[in-house]
């Protein structure tokens, strides 16, 4: 199973700033191994963020996103103590969900 994400969420004025580190290989499908065989693509495809159950960000990612990606975004609203939940799904169908409390 994939390693946990590292999520920080803080209220800045009337918005909430969320910073997420994800642990993922993000293999592009363009590289070849030592035998010359193509290494199959394996990367995060969709990212979904919810605040108290309501979607505040949904993204579709491709092979151009870096290994162990860092995502930072802001949304209007949010208060200390609210929950932010992030879910990603990759090309193998693996998925991981982690939650953080807004500070």
């Amino acid at each position: 199973m994939a390693d946990p994400m590292k999520i920080r969420a803080n209220v800045v004025g009337d918005t909430t700033e969320v910073k997420v580190l994800m642990s993922h290989e993000m293999e592009t499908g363009q590289r070849k191994d030592a035998q010359g065989k193509t290494i199959p693509a394996w990367h995060i495809q969709t990212v979904n963020a919810t605040w108290n159950g309501k979607t505040v960000l949904s993204a579709q990612w491709g092979p151009a996103v870096a290994k162990n990606p860092f995502l930072s975004f802001k949304f209007k609203g949010g208060a200390k103590g609210d929950k932010v939940q992030i879910t990603w799904t990759d090309t193998r169908g693996d998925t991981r969900t982690d939650e953080a409390t807004i500070g």
Partner: peptide, 12 residues
């Protein structure tokens, strides 16, 4: 600097 993946290793 802001999003250092080293934190993933620290957590592990």
């Amino acid at each position: 600097q802001d999003g250092n993946p080293a934190e993933l290793w620290e957590a592990r």
